[in-house]
Design a protein around this nucleic acid. Sequence first.
DNA 1: AAATGCTTCAACCGCAGCTCT
DNA 2: AAGAGCTGCGGTTGAAGCATT
Length: 235
Amino acid sequence: MVRAPYFDKNGTKKGAWCEEEDKKLIAYVQNHGHPNWRQLPKFAGLQRCGKSCRLRWMNYLRPNLKRGNYTPKEEQIITDLHKKHGNKWSLIAESLPGRTDNEIKNYWHSHLKKFQNSNNNSSCDEDLKSNGCKEFEMEMNEGHSVESHHILESSVSITSETSYTDHNSPCLSFCSSHTESTMNLCKEEESVASWETLDLGFSSNFWTEPFISENALDEDYFHISSYGTEPFYLW
DNA sequence: AAATGCTTCAACCGCAGCTCT
DNA sequence: AAGAGCTGCGGTTGAAGCATT
């Protein structure tokens, strides 16, 4: 479901990432972080542009990303925050730890958007039911409309002060304790607990240091789980 | 079984905004 | 203050997989 790999006129690779590229990117970010995406591919031995590397890392490779199945509560949050903020996907993503703006955007367009403008549409009801939204079923049994779907007993009500972010998550606690020395790895993944176990080992000459070989990839920190069907790295 | 249409999602592009000099 | 460089965001696209005919 991805674009076929190809090289543009500048010799930059585009399209789907292969396992080898992922390994290189992970190894490099593990060892050096990513203070400069633009320079990163050069030092990491990738024929990609910095943007592509950043996107790949942020949306697919960084630790503690959740994938697949959105819970009814997550759907609720997305729906509510979208009502409140519109297409501010990054803002919405802040309230859903482990979800990326891109993923939320995709999910919105493929799953939730269709419910926005359809009020008591019966096919909509069926979709929600079939998606296993128990709260929805309960509510419908009580004679509520789809429009009221977002006001669930189990859901968190949205106010301007409300954040869905789990402030007790290891993610954030690590973030707050993380020091400058990690060179602002990034806003989110730096906060992931698994990073705590890593000695990132930044050196002062890090950006002048040439690409570290693939062998630098430390298999102890992650392994690839069935690449292709479940292209996820377990840290 | 084959053809066609639809859905999903990874990845691309352009632009806005921020930082640095 | 202005310009360059970089990052991050949001819209869009392309193609695999799935469903339907």
